[in-house]
Each structure stands twice: as C-alpha cells, then as structure tokens.
Amino acid sequence: MRLRVEFTTEPFDLDEAPAHALAAREVIETAELDAVDVGPFGNTAEGSTDGVLEAVDTLLRKSLEAGATRISLQVSVIGDGNGEGGR
C-alpha cells in the first residue's frame, strides 16, 4: 500500500522557519519517501506504508521536542502498490 502524508507544524513564524519546522523538514527529507514537497504552509510526502508511518512517528517526536505546540496531519491511502489506487 502507498500512503500520502500532509502536515503542518505550529506556531507559525513568517519571518524565519522555527526549529520545529526545520526538524519536521529534516525528518521528511531524510526518510525513505518519495514525492516530497516542503513549503511554508504545508508539506506532503508519499511512500510505502512503513516509510510513511515511520516518518510520521519520528516527525511527531522531533517536532514536539523542538517546540511545536500543534501538529496537524492527514494520512491518505493513494494506492495498493499494484497500480490500484484510493484516489
């Protein structure tokens, strides 16, 4: 199965990326995922079930440790690995 995760961390700072946002970005960019898109108001990544779930666990832990007060995320099934999707 393939999954997509979409997430944001708060509090926002429009002048400079806060430590929790940098921590989340590092987790996603170094995880075994593909189709990573990191932006100022939302982030997405896709990958295998194990890859996404491991990244989400690490992202939550590291972002909270770095000062996030809220993390919003959504995980969606986008395929079963055999070309069949849940879009």
Rank of each mutant, 00 (worst) to 15 (best):
G85K: 07
A19R: 15
T9K: 09
H20N: 12
E84S: 00
V75T: 08
L33A: 06
E32M: 05
P40F: 02
D34T: 08
L59K: 09
G67N: 11
V75L: 12
E54I: 01
D13L: 12
G39V: 06
E65H: 09
S72Y: 11
A23E: 10
L14S: 13
D15M: 15
V38C: 01
G81P: 01
G79M: 08
F41K: 06
G83Y: 00
A19K: 15
D80V: 01
D50R: 02
G39I: 06
L22M: 14
E6S: 12
I71D: 06
G67S: 11
K62S: 13
E6N: 13
L3W: 01
E29R: 15
S72K: 13
L22G: 08
L22K: 15
T69Y: 07
R61T: 15
M1S: 03
S48E: 05
G39K: 07
S76M: 08
I78L: 08
F12G: 11
E84W: 05
G67C: 10
Q74I: 12
T49M: 03
E32Q: 07
D50N: 06
V27K: 03
V27D: 04
V56L: 11
M1I: 09
M1E: 02
V77D: 08
A31P: 07
T30W: 01
A68G: 11
G42Q: 06
G79W: 06
R70S: 09
N43L: 01
E26Q: 15
L60V: 15
A21M: 12
I78Q: 07
A19D: 14
F41I: 02
V56E: 00
S48A: 02
V5Y: 00
D37L: 06
T49L: 01
N43M: 02
T49N: 04
R70A: 11
G83Q: 07
F12W: 14
T30N: 10
K62F: 11
I71P: 09
A55I: 05
V52L: 04
R61I: 11
R4V: 08
E6L: 13
L22P: 08
R87E: 12
E10I: 13
A31G: 04
L64I: 15
T30M: 02
A45Y: 03
D57G: 05
E26L: 11
A45G: 03
E84M: 00
A45M: 00
M1F: 07
I71C: 12
T8E: 10
A31Q: 04
V75R: 01
E32L: 01
T9M: 09
E6K: 09
E84N: 07
T44N: 03
N43K: 02
G67A: 10
A17P: 14
L73D: 09
A31K: 05
N43I: 00
V56S: 03
A21T: 13
E65S: 15
L33P: 03
D57N: 08
Q74L: 10
L64K: 12
D57Q: 08
G83D: 05
V27I: 14
G51R: 03
R61M: 09
I28T: 05
I78H: 05
T44K: 04
N82M: 08
F41D: 07
D57V: 03
P18G: 12
L60Y: 00
L64E: 13
